[in-house]
Amino acid sequence: MISSLKSSLESTFKDVAVGEPEAGRLSVLAPKDSLPVVLRYLKENGLDHLALLSCVDWPERGKFEVVYVLSCYMPSNTDYASEQRLHVFVKAEIPREHPALQSVIDVFENAEPYEREIHELFGVHFAGHPRLIPLFLEREYEIPPFRKDFDTRQYVAETFDPIPPVDE
């Protein structure tokens, strides 16, 4: 299944780079504008479970790497096929300056909170998201806190030090 998926991906999309970093896993690097179509294509080809949507900050490269982890639900209700162990990482690299992406909620509905989270913690904008409002945090920060240049130790020192004495 892996090799057929790999070749069909490569023949369908001219602008994606497909790698197989380990057995049972594909890594697909797509231009950000193609993401919704690539994801839809994969979903229609059995990868119907968006397990996770994550983001990695690479400040030296000046990029955010947005990662969609896809795997398969059961094709039938009885058997456990080894194909189900397939994982696909779909990735897109976007610039750290004004990072923006197309929302994929219309492909995977459960991407909704993930996109909100990444917007909140990394400052990535998802165009077409119906409510890109904070998910976890109480307030907004100048630097979104999960970016590498947000220094947690410094933040803690500035916000919580010195520890006030406890009254008896």
């Binding site: 119907d48 479970h49 968006l50 397990a51 639900y73 059961m74 209700n77 456990y80 509905e109």
Partner: peptide, 18 residues
Amino acid sequence: AKALGATGQVLRATGMRY
């Protein structure tokens, strides 16, 4: 359940042995 990313009992209670 599948569309919304359910797993565990939520999915298994709908008949899928995932």
